[in-house]
Amino acid sequence: MLAKRIIPCLDVRDGKVVKGVQFRNHEIVGDIVPLAQRYAEAGADELVFYDITASSDARVVDKSWVSRIAQVIDIPFCVAGGIKSIEDAGRILEMGADKISVNSPALANPDLIRALHDTFGQQCVVVGIDSFFDAQTGQYQVYQFTGDEKRTQATRWQTQDWVAEVQQLGAGEIVLNCMNQDGVRQGYDIPQLSSIRARCNVPLIASGGAGSMAHFADVFTQADVDGALAASVFHKGVIDIPALKQYLRQQGVAMRNDDRECV
């Protein structure tokens, strides 16, 4: 049976892993490679590295850390941040990343998704979506440039429409980051994720809000997402990955076991 995935997310700024609360006040968590290795050893099913400054700074970022990660870990990983072209994506995939994730550049140029699909195949094209619930209009709205507080802005897209569009263009997976929940550890946005799940025929990854092991059980059993992404609860040691996976197994959620005796 296909297992649900636990995905630690490492936000990268200037070669260090950082964590902010609702995209602000970033603090350094540690070096990328040892953290990646530690999570892989602990049983993480996949890792995501977001270069949170890249899109908003409009600069070329040193991505040499991608190949250092590819050398040491034996689970898949995805790189996001500032990927604006086929060439950008190709370089990262050649360095050993399994997937690339596009967010703001895909909003600026939706055809990028189609081009990535046609060049590298659907399996490596992840579209990240930052979605904010506007209480005044009662709508979920897609935001861009969320790596930089000063430039963060709403787009013309409502979340459900953008989800439909990116699938049409060839996305192989969608990471839905529910901004209202991000970093506050009050649980995933189950209503929004359930609603998007019903419109999403590719794997859907929940992001934003994990604070306790029960939150993971809720998002898997209630919103039927394929994976759950989290950062601070793992970085700060609030949740231990082996304990989380054991707990989820007890809740009836299919989880991979990593047989340490096998090699």
Partner: peptide
């Protein structure tokens, strides 16, 4: 959902040196 993406198990595993210990 397609792609079939993620971790999955095998079944009906044949005796073959490639699959020793699996």
């Amino acid at each position: 959902r397609l792609p079939h993406m993620g971790w999955n198990t095998l079944s009906d595993i044949a005796e073959h040196p490639l699959l020793h210990g699996i």
